[in-house]
Computed example of a mutant assay.
Amino acid sequence: MKTIMVNKAGDVDVLQYQDADMPNHCADDEVLIKVMAAGVNPVDTKVRANGLMFDDAYPAILGCDGAGFVESIGADVEHLQVGDAVYYCYGGLGQKSDAGDSVGNYAEYAVVRAAYVALKPTSLDFDTAAASPLVLITAWEALFDRARLQSGQKVFIHAGAGGVGHVAIQLAKLAGAEVATTVSSAEKANFVKELGADLVINYKTQNVADVLLDWTDGLGVDVAFDTVGGEAFKQLIPAMRLYGDLVSILQFPEDTDWKTLRVKNVRLSQTLMLTPMLKESVELGEHHAGILEQCAQFFDEKKLVVYVDETLPLQDAKLAHEKIEQGHQSGKIVLQMHMDEMEA
C-alpha cells in the first residue's frame, strides 16, 4: 500500500511517500479501514517536527483523522460491520496496532481501535468526513465537557474561520448561545457571519477585550474558548464575566494574571482531545465516538458543516504541511487515497 512514512523528526522533507506492507491482522478490538481520505491538522505538523508521542515508534505513519470503509473487524467488535462507511480520530501519534504496525491515516489502509470509530454521516463525502473528527471533538469537549455551555450564554471563540473555530461557532449556536469571534479580514468576517456569528471582531484593528465588554454591557462573556494562546489568551482576562469559564487548547502563559482570574472566580480549563489516545483509554475513545455520532445527526439534518479548503493527493503531504505551517488557513486540508476509485 502507499503511505507517507517518517523515520525521524524534522521539516517537511522527512515525509516520505513510499510503499509499505498492508496490515493483515485485526486484534479482537480492532478494525481494518480502507482509508479514502485523511484530514491534515496542525498537530500532524507538530508531531512531524518535534517527534512522536510514543516510545520506539519510528518508522511511523502520521495522520489522526480518517474516513473510509471497514474491510475487516475483530471478534469483539459489535457496533460495526464489514462495508460500513466510517469516520474517526485515531492514530498518527506513534501508536502501533496489536500486530506491531504503525497506525496512521496517511496511508491507504489503517488498523484502528474500534472504540474510536463511528459511522460516517450519510450526507458527507469522504473528504469532508475525514476533515471533521478532530475539530468536532475539540470544539465539543471545550464548549460542553469543560465550559458546560448553556442556552442564552454569551461565548467568545478565537479564530472563527479556522478549523476548530468554524465548528465551535456552529455548535455554540446549536446550543442556543450568542457567539462572538475574531477574524483577520473582511472575507473571513463574511464566512463566520454565514456560520451564525453574532459579533465579528477584526483583531488587527480592534481591541478584543473592549469590544467584548461593550457587547456584554461591561459584564464580560460567560464562556471564552481560546485556540490561539499567548498574548491572545491574556487579552481575554479583562473580558471574562464573574464566575465565567475560560477554556484553552494550549498551555497557559507563565505570566498570566492569575490574581485577576481568581478575584473574578473564573474557572480555567484546558482541553486536549488527544488524551484518550495517549492514555489508550477505551472508555474515553467511546466518548469520542459518541460525539461523532451526535455530530453525524447534525450533519444529516443540515445543521452543521465542515469547510474543506483544499484536497490533495496523498503524495502531496509535504505541500499540505507547508500550507498548515504558513497559517491563516480557512477550513481544512484533506489528503485523498484511492483516487481512481473516487473518480470512477
Rank of each mutant, 00 (worst) to 15 (best):
A85P: 09
P23K: 00
D55K: 13
L236I: 01
E343I: 05
A75V: 11
L246R: 07
M53F: 03
A114Y: 03
Q81F: 01
V221G: 04
R262Q: 12
K2I: 13
L268G: 08
L274T: 04
M53Y: 12
F233D: 13
K279G: 03
F225S: 12
E280V: 06
F298K: 09
V112K: 08
S185C: 07
L246S: 08
A38F: 00
P59I: 04
Q206D: 12
A177P: 14
A49Y: 05
N202E: 00
I157L: 14
D214V: 02
D309E: 14
A320V: 04
I61P: 09
R113Y: 08
G104N: 10
R241C: 08
F233K: 10
P23A: 03
Q16M: 10
R148K: 15
P253Q: 07
L242K: 10
Q329E: 10
L250A: 12
Q95T: 12
G74T: 13
A159L: 02
A129C: 12
A172M: 14
A159R: 06
D13T: 05
R148Q: 15
D255V: 03
D198W: 05
K302R: 01
E343L: 05
E78W: 02
T311Y: 07
T138W: 05
F69Y: 05
S72T: 15
K264N: 12
G218R: 11
V308Y: 08
D257W: 01
T227Q: 14
I33R: 06
Q235Y: 01
E301I: 06
G220P: 03
A67E: 15
L174G: 02
V82A: 04
H328Y: 12
E286V: 10
D21H: 02
V155A: 09
Q270Y: 07
A317L: 04
E78F: 08
V35C: 13
K204C: 14
V155T: 09
L62R: 00
D340V: 04
Q251S: 15
G331T: 02
F191M: 12
L52P: 08
G220N: 07
N207Q: 11
L119H: 14
M36T: 06
N105A: 13
H25N: 14
L246Q: 09
P238G: 06
E71D: 08
A142P: 06
M36P: 07
A317E: 11
D127K: 02
D255Q: 08
V208M: 12
L335V: 09
A232W: 04
Q150R: 10
L261M: 09
S330W: 05
K302H: 14
